[in-house]
Every structure is written in structure tokens, then in C-alpha cells.
Write a protein that binds this DNA or RNA. Sequence first.
DNA 1: TCCTTAAGAGTCATGTTGACTATAAAGGTC
DNA 2: GACCTTTATAGTCAACATGACTCTTAAGGA
Lengths: 245, 245
Amino acid sequence: MTAHQPPEGYDPRAFEPFAVTVDLAVLTVREERLHVLLVERGESPYAGSWALPGGFVLPRESAEQAARRELAEETGLSGDTVADLHLEQLRTYSEPDRDPRMRVVSVAFTALVPDPPEPRGGGDAAQARWLPYGTHGPLAFDHDRILADAHDRVGAKLEYTCLATAFCPPEFTLGELRQVYETVWGVELDRPNFRRKVLATPGFVQAVAGPPRLTGGRGKPAALYRAGEATTLHPPLLRPEGRPA
Amino acid sequence: MTAHQPPEGYDPRAFEPFAVTVDLAVLTVREERLHVLLVERGESPYAGSWALPGGFVLPRESAEQAARRELAEETGLSGDTVADLHLEQLRTYSEPDRDPRMRVVSVAFTALVPDPPEPRGGGDAAQARWLPYGTHGPLAFDHDRILADAHDRVGAKLEYTCLATAFCPPEFTLGELRQVYETVWGVELDRPNFRRKVLATPGFVQAVAGPPRLTGGRGKPAALYRAGEATTLHPPLLRPEGRPA
DNA sequence: TCCTTAAGAGTCATGTTGACTATAAAGGTC
DNA sequence: GACCTTTATAGTCAACATGACTCTTAAGGA
């Protein structure tokens, strides 16, 4: 078969059509734990299971537009808020039997959100909720794998990009930033070394003028920072041990 | 719209269906230049332009299966050879108007091949050819962007994975491996430092017993190595300057 | 025989990292 | 109020990795 030329007599409409959907792995750090946004399925298949939010790509939108639209609908976030979120294509899942009902090719996205606003279901029934990563049972469809892939990807990208700031509110302390790394990687980092590394990387964070902020309780107040201009880290901030699987 | 539940009255078959295709950015290093496998389009749109090889995903195959099948068909490589190639999903391109004829969502893959066997068109007309990267005019559809994304991705992955060995034949010299880095990154690397770094990374390469091989002409014969067990580089082998755009 | 090319061994100064120590500034407890 | 705990922030020091080199070896070509 030649590139992009259907074989003789091929008419895509003659086949059972492919449905194209988006799935969203929306992650946040809340109370020192990684949380995922999930919806509970009401119907078969997988009725009663948790699933990643998502939905069909409409005829005139791109997969990314569909992802932002679904995210707004399922979380009740405003369009402006959703427009600013860090949204990144993860990969596409296309196994023929991943959905028992029909042929569905799904473009998965990873979204990172700072302060987790409690979601409210959109106009319709499905209630989206934040659950601690790993505490939910098996997810519907191949969503366990999608979620695991998203976690792997985010963990890897923390090493060589400034992605961690996407988990933080506009102004944050270095302790909060360190907490992001510790939570996603599941390790403890040395405070002074982390601080030295972040401040030595030009453009990672920029100091905010003004008084330090109380950390919410104990300890010495911490200085505030904003995300900087840089998007990549050179050299990278590597995980303690070797790379995980 | 609730996750994976079509809205009321929604029937995917009622819409113009989405076609799902794969596009392949097949790269190799030949004569110290990066080469891309391209096919010449015979029909409108973009008749006469070069395009990435690719084709439709059939109803019962995954995108990756379709990619390997298309690759075998368009290069004339045997199924076994294609089965061993390094094939990696790049990302999915889904802009509504990327193909003027119909709605086509394309899953792009990057394939890395070692010694470039001159391809022969499969049973059908399209002649696939290796062209030096950048010497072809504008490609059909959004393939310039796909190819650029593939190049970026490969360049970045050379830094922190053992991917470079996928460009090399089963047994290779460190000079050939260095050539891969230099060609993809477009820089010159210091020979002794490159050697030290590669040999110091456990599992990157393993020495092959036996006599050294003549490099094909000048210079001292070089020892041969095979790809090792490792898949990631710790610490990474960073590009000389900062990261490119 | 001499020149050129590339492999491979080794040196040295610099930069980065991991492990630690110490001090400052908050809240909590008795 | 004295004292403990917690967290931020400033340093120190040794191990390690890197970039820039030099030098030797072993091939082909003129």
C-alpha cells in the first residue's frame, strides 16, 4: 500500500469506522501525595470502575482541543484556567480490542495542575474526583497502563525540564517545589543540595520581591519564587538512584 | 460529555468517519549524513512532492503493527528485519485540515535503521528513496513538521538513552558510534572524551573478542563492540552547548 | 620513507554532586 | 519563659564527571 493512497477499491467508509477519543491523566500534588483525577463509570463495560476522564474528538477539533474541552467540562474549571494548564500529548493507544464495544483509537494526554480545585461534574452525571495515585482499584479499559505511562513520563521529564513548576501555584517556595520532586519520584531529597541546584540553574525560578511567607505552620518562613523563563535544565537534575523501570 | 460515553443520540457512524493512518520518519546515518526515507507522491494533493512513507491502519491491527507492515512493504525489507528495527511512537497529528481530502488522524513513528539497504518499492508504484535530511523540498501534508519533531526527539534521546546503537550494525566501532552522535547533533565531539564516557557507562557497549577491524581505509584499526544491555545513560551524555530549540 | 588519518592511553584543571554541619526563625509544649 | 521540633538557608569537603589537551600506535597513500 502506497503512502496515503488507499489501495485500489479502498473506501474508508466501507469499513467499520474508527472512533477517535482523548484520555486525560490529570495529576496534582496534594498533601504530599500524588493525586489523579478520575471519573466513576456508570455504564457497562466497567460499570462502577474508575476511569480517566476523556471523550470523543468532535469532527472539527484537534485532539488537543478535545482534551481541553473535556477537561473543562469534567472539572468545571473555566476555559481560561484550562487554557493555561500544562497539557502534553503522552501517546496514542490503538490496540484493536482496547474497547470491547467498537474500534477506538485514543490519544492520551498528561495534564499537570497546581492547586487542586475540587472538581464538580459538568452538566452531566459523572462526578470527577481526585484520588491518591495507587489507591484506586484497577481502572477501566487500558487506563491503568495509560496512567502508569503518564507517571513514568512525568517522572522522567522532571529530570531534564522545568516541568515541576507546573504543579505549583504562581508563587511558591523552594520547599513546595522540592515536595513535587519528592512526591513524583517517591524519594527524599537533601534540602540544601536541592536548593543549590535549583538556584544555580539560570531561568528555573526567579525570586519574588517582598517578605517571606509562612510555610503554613512550623519552621522558618520561606522566600517566594515564580517559574522562570527556562524550559529545560542543563545539566539535568537526576534522580538519586539509577533510573527506575 | 462523560468519559467514553457518547452524548445522547451520538452514533459515530453518523459522522464522517475518521481515517487513522501511520506516518513513518525512518532515519539512518549514511556517509556521515543523516538520511530520511521518502516516497514520491504520484497523485494529488501534493503530486510530485516527497512524503513520509505511511498508510492506513487496517481494521484489525494496532498502529504499531500498521507501521511495521508499511515499512516492510515500502522498503522491501523482510518481516524479520523489520521486526527487529527500533520503532518508537513519536506523537499523533490530528489537526482537522491536515489532509484536504478527509479527516485523517495520523500516528507518527520514528524508526532508526543501521546500514541503509537501498529500498525497493513494494509491489506497487511508489519508489521509496533515501534522501539526505534537509535536501528535499517541502514535504507533503504536515510531514515537514513530523520530520522535524522526529529529529528533535532523536537528538534529545541520544543524550539520555543508548538509542545511538540502533543506528549501528550489530558490530561497530566507537568511531561509528561517535559518528552517529556527530551527525544527528551536527557537532564534532572530542574522540578521547567520547570514548571515555561510553566505556565508563556500564552496559552501553560490550567489547567483541577478536581482532580489530580496519576502519575502511585510513587510520589505526578499531576494536569492535556490540550494543549492551543498558537502555538508559546515567549520567547522560549531554550535547556540547545548551539544548537547541 | 614520510605524511596523513584515526584509534586509543593518559593528564590536568574545572565544575557538579552527595553527604554533612551549622545557624536562623518560626510554632508547640510544659 | 525555657526548650523542643520543624523548616529555611548558608557553608564545607571529598568524590566524581567533564572539557581541553598531549602523546603514542598502526594503518593507507604519495
